[in-house]
């Protein structure tokens, strides 16, 4: 047996795979559970977090909004302090 034949046999072995028969059932079960849990919620918290993580612009807007809110709050406190 030549070396490239053995290499080919090794690749064939790496490609061979046994999957438990219930695999797709287990995935679908997980999905149905997820759907059931999601049904009662108006906002899916996990989805909101994922949405924020996956959109850079949303992250930038949220950080900017938080920064502005913080600045306004500090400015207000300073203004109140100086006014008194």
């Amino acid at each position: 047996m030549k070396i490239d034949e053995v290499y080919g046999a090794w690749k064939d072995e790496k490609v061979r795979i046994d999957i438990r028969e219930s695999f797709s059932d287990e995935v679908m079960c997980k999905i149905y559970q997820y759907e059931q849990g999601r049904g009662g919620l108006l906002f899916d918290r996990q989805q909101i977090v994922e949405f924020i993580y996956s959109h850079r612009l949303v992250r930038v807007v949220l950080v900017a909004a938080a920064g502005i809110a913080g600045f306004v709050r500090i400015a207000f406190v300073v203004f109140m302090f100086l006014a008194s």
């Binding site: 790496k14 490609v15 795979i17 999957i19 695999f23 797709s24 995935v27 679908m28």
Partner: peptide, 10 residues
């Protein structure tokens, strides 16, 4: 799932 389970697991 049934179409892609093998390549994904492999």
């Amino acid at each position: 799932v049934e179409r892609y389970e093998r390549p994904v697991i492999r």
